[in-house]
């Protein structure tokens, strides 16, 4: 298809741009557009679940995380220019060119090996899953059937990894202990228009998120994508009104208990006599809802960790400027 070729070319160009641009913010924006093109490309390759996940998580949330994390840290344009003028830097740029050529040759050798030795081994798993997923699991979406029934271990450890990632982020960013973080960052909203209109948007976003979660076994979507959409409500609320509206420790405890719920619920799959055909569908919906809430809490905590860090940096900066 010529359309997919256009998208692939645009992806390569955007990847090169996000690597080569000197200013970090612009590179991050290019990365976000790259993810968006990626999401549209998955749609052409018959993967609507992945497309939704990439659009929500890769393109929107990851870009927001990057921008919050590097806020106030990047160099000014004049600093970059003066640094790139020095003769030492010229030598370094020459070295970059050299390594670029080396990696291009290695890449082409690997690609030629790949296309020389690839062979078709048939798809036994594909036949099994595609023929029997409706009768086995009661789901209408084969992707949901796989990650909530056939390979539910993958989902469990994925949820565990998300939890570990959040704990690691909180450890590196040193949360303010004991204090109520909510009071620390409560300031006036930046723009009255944004604060008012974003209040009108919450019902739409919540409706869409719950629709995606509850219909995850029938249509593209599911717990991960819907949870990310719900987390965006917290993020919009912070950006529009400068208010968290929820205590972060409650959010963390909620996340852990949702994870326990997911583990307990997936244990039911070990009892085959319990799983008649009505209960199977109910089980899928319940799992999707729990995963959705867990991912929502997790992503909101990840975001707020960076927000606390940023307010701390601004505090110390302001103090050093004043004193």
């Amino acid at each position: 298809m010529p359309v997919t070729i256009v998208f692939l070319l645009a992806m390569v160009v955007l990847a090169v741009a996000s690597i080569q641009v000197r200013k970090a913010e612009i590179a991050v924006i290019y990365l976000g557009i790259f993810s968006l093109f990626n999401a549209i490309f998955y749609l052409f390759y018959s993967a609507p679940d992945l497309s939704l996940a990439e659009a929500v998580i890769g393109s929107a949330l990851a870009t927001a995380l990057f921008l919050v994390a590097i806020k106030g840290y990047t160099l000014r344009r004049t600093q970059i220019k003066s640094e790139y003028r020095s003769p030492k830097m010229r030598l370094a740029l020459f070295g970059e060119l050299f390594w670029g050529v080396v990696f291009l040759t290695i890449g082409f050798i690997v690609i030629s090996f790949y296309f020389g030795t690839v062979q078709d081994v048939g798809k036994p798993a594909w036949y099994h899953y595609v023929r029997s997923f409706i009768s086995d699991t009661g789901a209408r979406n084969a992707v949901t059937a796989i990650y909530l029934n056939y390979r539910v271990f993958d989902t469990l450890f994925e949820a565990l990894l998300l939890l570990v990632g959040i704990l690691a982020t909180a450890y590196f960013l040193e949360w303010p202990e004991g204090k109520e973080p909510e009071e620390e960052i409560a300031t006036k909203p930046d723009s009255e228009i944004v604060a008012r209109i974003s209040g009108l948007l919450y019902p739409f976003i919540l409706l869409y998120g719950f629709y995606i979660i509850v219909n995850g076994h029938l249509t593209p979507g599911g717990g991960f994508q819907g949870g990310a959409i719900l987390a965006s409500v917290f993020i919009i609320r912070y950006f529009a009104q400068r208010r968290l509206g929820i205590n972060i420790f409650i959010l963390q405890r909620l996340e852990k208990s949702f994870f326990l719920g997911i583990i307990a619920l997936s244990m039911l799959l070990l009892l085959p006599e319990f799983m008649n055909s009505d209960f199977k569908v109910f089980h899928l919906v319940l799992m999707n809802i729990l995963i959705g809430f867990k991912v929502c809490c997790g992503l909101a905590i990840l975001f707020f960790c960076f927000i606390f860090q940023q307010t701390k940096v601004e505090d110390t900066k302001g103090r050093s400027e004043r004193g």
Binding site: Y45, S46, A47, D49, L50, A53, E54, I57, G58, L61, A62, L65, F66, A69, I70, Y73, K123, A125, W126, Y129, V130, F133, A142, V143, A145, I146, Y147, R151, D154, T155, E158, L161, L162, V164, G165, I166, A168, T169, F172, L173, E174, G222, F224, V295, G298, L299, L302, C305, F306, Q309
Partner: peptide, 30 residues
């Protein structure tokens, strides 16, 4: 239908990807 197995595995990969990105960004920030 296309093969659903790689898609199901890659959804988990995307969610793990954002948590690993967040850890890397936290280390960078510190």
């Amino acid at each position: 239908m296309v093969d659903p197995l790689p898609q199901a595995l890659m959804i988990t990969a995307i969610v793990i990807g954002i948590s690993s990105t967040a850890v890397a960004l936290a280390m960078y920030s510190q």
